[in-house]
Amino acid sequence: MSSNYTRRDLLRNAALGAVLGGISDDLMAEVHLMAEFDQAASGGVYQPKAFATGEWATLRHLCDLILPADEVSRGAIEAGCPQYIDLLASGSSELAMILAGGIQWLDSMARGAHGKPFMSASPEQQTALLDRIAYRRNDSPDLAAAIRFFELLRRMTVDAFYTSKIGIADVGYMGNKGMTKFEVPVESLQYAIQRSPV
């Protein structure tokens, strides 16, 4: 029914429509239906829309390095972060270019320093490379684009993770339900007042 090509077209049109304010709810509904269809048609294995196979593997790995599983919750891959990034990148050639460019930069640096692509580098080598672009204090004309790439990737990964069921449970959001009376637990109030200077 829907090839990846048509889906990408649809998303581009949707993104363009959104910019111009002309997007219809029907079009958006169609996009979501197609996303579900794509996933079902691929037998549950997600097929990236905006990334080549190698790029996709690196993107997934980067998401997992940004928000890995820990003692409280599972990681970015389980939370669907790469799919979210792929969806937005498939509707924006500008975003796709920034992300693919960042992945390319990591590969070039890893090849230069260690003679192998980023994914084949050791965990320590990967971390050392990422540390160069994960902090604004390292900003320089050489690194500016890579730092911007990683900042975007971090924001997108965090947004996708904490809007997922896994992320919501991690921070412990308890709302989005109806109640007949609004009450604040005395224990919470007393705790904060005791710790407050006023």
Partner: peptide, 11 residues
């Protein structure tokens, strides 16, 4: 699936 971001424009 876009979680409310709608498109890449936000980023």
């Amino acid at each position: 699936d876009h979680r409310g971001a709608e498109s890449a424009d936000y980023y």
